[in-house]
Simulated assay, not measured.
Amino acid sequence: MQKLLKHVSERIRFYRKAANLTQEELSELLNIDRSYIGKIERGEVNASLDTIERIALALKVDPFELFHKQSKGTNKDKRDFIEKINIILTNQKIEELKMLYDVIRTVQLYKNIK
């Protein structure tokens, strides 16, 4: 059980930082004590599923993502960047997403020309 607790706590910290939130800001969103968020992220307390779900919703990720374990052989850094980008994209309007898509396609096309 300790491995799961450590894994979930690391995922919560990862998504909080990716969302550019401090522990204090997250605790305010959840209306819980900041020190409790710290204990959760350090794996010192076993948060309830209800609390984990509330954290996930505040971080705008699917609660299952907090339990998701990357399979061996994947590029962790690449996956982390994709997850960070996904968090940013979640908050964008459709027009902004279309513009960002065009930028990505342009970069990809330019890269293929070189």
Results as ranks from 00 to 15, higher is better:
Gln2Gly: 14
Lys3Ile: 14
Leu5Val: 05
Lys6Asn: 10
Val8Thr: 12
Val8Gln: 04
Glu10Asn: 00
Arg11His: 04
Arg11Cys: 01
Ile12Glu: 00
Ile12Phe: 00
Arg13Trp: 05
Phe14Gly: 04
Phe14Tyr: 02
Tyr15Thr: 05
Lys17Pro: 07
Ala19Asp: 08
Ala19Cys: 14
Asn20Asp: 11
Leu21Gly: 03
Leu21Tyr: 07
Thr22Tyr: 02
Thr22Gln: 03
Thr22Phe: 00
Gln23Tyr: 01
Glu25Leu: 09
Leu26Phe: 04
Leu26Asp: 01
Leu26Gln: 04
Leu26Arg: 03
Ser27His: 07
Ser27Tyr: 03
Ser27Ile: 09
Leu29Met: 15
Leu29Asp: 10
Leu29Gly: 11
Leu30Arg: 00
Asn31Met: 13
Asn31Lys: 15
Asn31Phe: 08
Ile32Thr: 12
Ile32Met: 13
Ile32Glu: 08
Ile32Gly: 09
Asp33Asn: 13
Arg34Asn: 06
Arg34Gly: 01
Arg34Ser: 09
Ser35Ile: 12
Tyr36Gln: 15
Ile37His: 04
Lys39His: 08
Glu41Leu: 02
Arg42Val: 01
Arg42Ala: 02
Gly43His: 07
Gly43Tyr: 02
Gly43Asp: 02
Glu44Phe: 10
Glu44Trp: 05
Glu44His: 10
Val45Gln: 10
Ala47Gln: 03
Ser48Ala: 11
Ser48Tyr: 09
Leu49Asp: 08
Asp50Arg: 14
Asp50Trp: 02
Thr51Lys: 04
Ile52Thr: 09
Glu53Arg: 09
Glu53Cys: 04
Arg54Thr: 05
Ala56Ser: 06
Ala58Gln: 01
Ala58Trp: 03
Ala58Lys: 01
Leu59Asn: 01
Leu59Ala: 03
Lys60Ala: 10
Lys60Trp: 02
Asp62His: 07
Pro63Asn: 06
Phe64Gln: 09
Phe64Met: 06
Leu66Arg: 02
Leu66Met: 00
His68Met: 11
Gln70Asn: 08
Ser71Gln: 14
Lys72Cys: 11
Lys72Leu: 14
Lys72Met: 11
Lys72Asp: 08
Thr74Lys: 09
Thr74Tyr: 07
Asn75Trp: 03
Lys76Arg: 14
Lys78Arg: 15
Asp80Ile: 06
Phe81Val: 06
Phe81Asp: 04
Phe81Gln: 08
Ile82Cys: 07
Glu83Gly: 04
Glu83His: 08
Lys84Cys: 13
Ile85Asp: 08
Ile87Trp: 01
Ile88Pro: 03
Ile88Lys: 15
Lys93Val: 10
Ile94Phe: 05
Ile94Cys: 07
Glu95Lys: 15
Glu95Ala: 14
Glu95Met: 03
Glu95Ile: 11
Glu96Ala: 13
Leu97Val: 13
Leu97Asn: 15
Leu97Gly: 14
Lys98Asn: 09
Met99Gln: 13
Met99Ala: 12
Leu100Asn: 07
Leu100Met: 12
Tyr101Trp: 11
Ile104Lys: 15
Arg105Pro: 06
Thr106Tyr: 12
Val107Cys: 11
Val107Met: 07
Gln108Ser: 14
Gln108Leu: 15
Leu109Asn: 11
Tyr110Gln: 12
Asn112Ala: 15
Asn112Pro: 06
Lys114His: 10
Lys114Phe: 06
